[in-house]
């Protein structure tokens, strides 16, 4: 039913989706780590600002945030460039999509990681301090690895959300899987088939992710007494 070539388009869309999801997820985790530490150990102003950030991002639809951040972000960068006497630039859609979804993911990661850090038995952190670890070393060797088993379920869920949220970029016209599907479908009029195929691709991505997640979870919980589930 489909002319040759559409399959390639769909796969390219899938690749773009995975790329955006992976990028946004990485940014989200970095923002999340910084945000969690800010919320736990930061000063009162920083804590309130972070609270504002996580509250707003979690209450306003991703779609609205994507449009706002996309327009405002590109505008701001170009104004800054002009102010410093540089040429305006066209912001790459891929980069913009990754950044915007990353900021959204960051708000959720902040909460997940904050909870995970609070779940670490305090004595383990105290032991590290008692043996003279510097704050950086403590973070790298103790806090981050020790919080992982508590954070993995939440972070895994965020990865699944990230893969699905990439579809929202279709609305701002970025050629990820959903948008490629719509183009293919409206050209060939085979809407039913193409959306079914795209759904299967997303589902496969999710199921594949679940297999990986189960392995990562098992690894992260190696020091825990009760095996997961």
């Amino acid at each position: 039913m489909s002319p040759p070539g559409w399959g390639g388009n769909l796969l390219r869309g899938l690749f773009n989706s995975v790329l955006i999801a992976a990028g946004a997820y990485s940014i989200g985790i970095m923002v999340g780590i910084a945000g969690a530490f800010g919320k736990l150990y930061g000063g009162p102003v920083l804590r309130d600002l972070l609270e504002l950030y996580t509250t707003i991002v979690r209450a306003v639809p991703e779609l609205v945030l994507i449009l706002l951040l996309y327009f405002a972000g590109t505008d701001l960068i170009n104004r800054l460039l002009e102010a410093f006497g540089y040429q305006r630039i066209d912001i790459n859609g891929l980069v913009a999509g990754i950044c915007v979804l990353g900021i959204v993911q960051g708000a959720y990661s902040t909460e997940v990681i904050r909870g995970a850090i609070l779940a670490i038995p305090q004595g383990q952190i105290e032991a590290a301090r008692a043996y003279g670890m510097s704050p950086g070393l403590l973070l790298r060797r103790i806090t981050l690895p020790a919080m992982l088993p508590f954070a993995i379920p939440g972070l895994a869920n965020l990865w699944l959300i990230a893969t699905k949220d990439t579809a929202l970029l279709a609305i701002v016209g970025f050629n990820e899987l959903t948008q490629e599907t719509r183009t293919a479908a409206s050209t060939t009029k085979a809407y039913f088939t193409f959306f079914l195929v795209a759904g299967a691709l997303y589902l496969l991505l999710t199921l594949f992710s679940n297999v990986i997640i189960a392995r990562v979870e098992k690894w992260a919980r190696r020091g825990m007494h009760v095996e997961s589930h």
């Binding site: 038995p121 004595g123 105290e126 032991a127 043996y131 003279g132 670890m133 103790i142 088993p149 825990m224």
Partner: peptide, 20 residues
């Protein structure tokens, strides 16, 4: 303080071995 701590061997009531 870090240098001094690194030569004081502390043993805690609740062991506090690093679980990971």
């Amino acid at each position: 303080i870090e240098r001094i701590r690194s030569r004081l061997g502390m043993v805690f009531q609740s062991f506090n071995l690093w679980s990971h």
